[in-house]
């Protein structure tokens, strides 16, 4: 369960202020956070994952308060429990598909790369139709394929929380449906929690809960 209590956050350089009295996402729930671009939705995902630390209040996962963890513990927590899916895919151009999928295992101290992990990565790529493109580089893939690689990277660690930041924002309708199917299938099968930021309202009916981000946001003048 993800629990946010009395959270306040603003960047030192200003811009906007987040003020969340309480937000609870039960384990296995699929939550869509809607709102217009540039309002701080990505910041919310960063706060949930511990990339950012709130100025006040707490973010906890199953009772563990993220801000109480050390920097290393937060990084390890992210690599072990959270799967990130980004709008811009964020694949490394100099790595091929397989190496991009294995990236979390190469950069985290909490994960160990071995033969089993490699096998799982190949199976995952195979299940998402990328088996014959493992040696290709990001610039040799279509948009839909890039997002599927990014999803493979996010799912490889079998995370308990998926944080998706407008995952279909750069995709055509066909690929949008395919990508959402993949994410929802994983969440259904694994019982993971999904928090997805989106401003595409035609797919929000697939989520258990829709949170309007506007109520968490204060302008600088209001803060």
């Amino acid at each position: 369960m993800i629990k946010i209590e009395k959270l306040q956050f603003s960047y030192p350089e200003g811009g906007f202020c987040l003020d969340i009295e309480e937000l609870i996402v039960e384990r296995g729930r699929r939550v869509a956070v809607i709102g217009s671009s540039g309002t701080g939705k990505t910041t919310l995902l960063n706060l949930i994952s511990g990339v950012e630390i709130p100025n006040a209040g707490t973010v906890s996962h199953d009772g563990v308060v993220i801000s109480n963890l050390s920097d290393k513990q937060r990084r390890d927590f992210r690599s072990q429990h959270i799967g990130f899916v980004f709008q811009e895919f964020e694949l490394l151009e100099y790595l091929n598909v397989l190496d991009n999928i294995l990236l979390p295992y190469r950069i985290s101290t909490a994960l160990k790369l071995n033969g089993t992990v490699r096998q799982r990565a190949e199976q995952l790529a195979d299940s998402l139709g990328m088996a014959d493109k493992l040696r290709r580089y990001a610039n040799q893939l279509s948009q839909g394929e890039r997002q599927r690689v990014a999803i493979c990277r996010a799912l490889l660690t079998e995370p308990s929380v998926i944080l998706a930041d407008e995952p279909t924002g750069n995709l055509d309708p066909e690929n949008t449906k395919r990508v959402l199917d993949i994410i929802f299938d994983y969440v259904s099968e694994s019982g993971a929690t999904l928090v997805s930021v989106t401003h595409e309202l035609e797919h929000v009916d697939r989520f258990d809960e829709v949170v309007d981000f506007a109520k968490f946001r204060k302008g600088v003048a209001d803060a």
Partner: peptide, 16 residues
């Protein structure tokens, strides 16, 4: 910069 931010977000170690 973006590559570094991505690595940081998905749990890359500090000295990476």
């Amino acid at each position: 910069k973006r590559e570094i931010q991505t690595m940081h977000r998905i749990g890359g170690r500090k000295q990476l």
